[in-house]
Amino acid sequence: MKPHALQLYDYHVWANQRIFEYLKELPQDIYRKEIQSVFSSISEVLVHIYIADTIWLNVMSGISFDKAELRVQLREKTKGKSIEEMETMYFNLSEQFAEFFDRQGNLDQATFYEHPHFGRLETNFFELVQHVVNHGTYHRGNITAMLRQLGYPGVMTDYVVYLYAMNTKK
């Protein structure tokens, strides 16, 4: 059985993939359609999740939060990307996370980070993985609300749905 942190991250990847698969079934303009919501478009939500996930992978890998230019670089890297291109970027990022997990080994290992606004945090990698997953779950909920606002049902990405899906693969 996988360590819980890795299973949670697998859920995050699975849920993101379900969002991409569903969005590709909808009319193409839905991805970038401007609406009054938490984000201006569904594409902006996916860019936000991607940027946040990338920053957290960098932080866990020992790169400082103070790398403000990283956010600008990531914003530029994602600018104008199609849904298929973003899906590929998400896949590549999940591969980078997998490599990090393989190198790290013990995700319960104590570590600390210095955040420019919040100060020092003593934690472990598992808790940071939990944060990445929770952040993604929150924003996938934004996507569901935005889809409903645009007249489309959402796609189920609840953790229990993931557990059922994984159970049926056995």
Rank of each mutant, 00 (worst) to 15 (best):
R120G: 00
I63F: 13
G141Q: 12
T111F: 04
G154S: 11
K79F: 09
M89E: 08
L147N: 09
N92C: 06
G119S: 07
G80Q: 11
L150D: 00
Q96W: 04
T54E: 14
I55L: 15
K77P: 02
Y138M: 03
G151F: 10
A110H: 02
H135K: 03
V72I: 15
F112R: 05
G151Q: 12
R148E: 12
L107K: 05
H139N: 06
R148H: 15
E76M: 07
Q73P: 06
N142S: 10
F125D: 08
Y90N: 04
T78I: 13
D66I: 02
L147F: 10
E69C: 09
G119E: 05
G141N: 08
L74E: 13
G105Q: 15
K81W: 05
W56Q: 12
G154Y: 07
L128C: 06
L93R: 13
V132Y: 03
L147Q: 10
T54M: 12
Q109E: 08
F65V: 01
R120M: 01
G119Y: 04
L150T: 00
N142F: 12
D102E: 15
G119R: 04
A145L: 13
N142C: 09
W56L: 13
T144Q: 14
L121Q: 02
L74G: 11
F118S: 05
G80R: 09
G136D: 13
K81H: 10
A52W: 06
I55N: 15
N124S: 06
F101I: 05
F91I: 04
D53A: 07
R103I: 02
F118T: 01
E122K: 01
L70E: 11
A145H: 08
E95D: 11
A68W: 10
T88R: 14
F65T: 00
T144I: 13
D53T: 01
L57V: 03
V132N: 02
E95S: 08
L107P: 05
G62F: 09
D102C: 08
V59N: 14
D108M: 02
E85N: 10
M60H: 04
H139R: 01
Y90L: 01
D102W: 12
N58P: 07
D158F: 04
T123C: 01
F100E: 05
V129F: 01
F125S: 10
M60Y: 04
F125L: 10
V129H: 01
A110E: 03
G119L: 06
F97N: 03
K67T: 03
K81R: 14
T144W: 08
V59L: 15
